[in-house]
Amino acid sequence: MEPEEQSGPGLVFHPLDQFIVKPAFGDGVVNWYTVTNVTVWMGITLLCIFALFVLGSRGRAIIPSRTQSVVEMIYGFIYKMIEDISGKDATRYFPYVMTVFLFILFANYLALIPMSYSPTSMIAVTATLGFGAFIAITILGFVKNGMGFLSLFWVSAAPLALRPVIALIEIISYFVRPVSLSIRLVGNIAAGHVVLKVFAGFAAIAVASPAAILGIVAIYGLEVLVAGIQAYVFTILICVYLKDALHPHH
């Protein structure tokens, strides 16, 4: 890394370089099966979830240990969210929602480790999550309700004359859901990391470094909040969409 030599006159940062996908072992072309830095950090995410949820709950204690209480708290938090928002019959989809929530939560927080890689800042990842959830929930809606699922777009509470217009708006907003889901997550996480990197670049300049380091600390604190909030928002929206699929009648 020698940006001074490369950039010549003036400062040139490369804040987006942190998102480059490269093979984890050796050099070469990134094929679909190549073990890359993305793979490594997704694997670490999996290991952390395994460590917390499997090793942490190993005691099966009636009076839980600290780790076990954390696990139980997360469990209860998501379970209650599904129960409250999507209804009692939605709790059978609890493992799926939990999987998505934990992946985003852990990926977001692990990305805050310096030199780490953030899978949730890649649009391919968040779009897969968002569209995957969208398609699965839409299929579920049709399986559960048949054509009755379309009544989601036909708002019977509205005056008859307005219903076609509202239906059009509802359909558009329905298909925007996965886009907003994935863009929101990727935007928040990627933007945070870019800002951190830009501040880090300014920290190399002696005059600006105190302010830059202060900025890094502040943005880092904000990112800690954002990491949790984005995982929460993603999950709660999935719960809302799940409710629509299970109970489309307003």
Binding site: V30, T36, M42, T99, P119, T128
Partner: peptide, 13 residues
């Protein structure tokens, strides 16, 4: 790079 990310994401999930 997208197929790689999607593939490993699905495996991880």
């Amino acid at each position: 790079w997208m197929p790689n990310q999607i593939f490993w994401l699905i495996i991880t999930l």
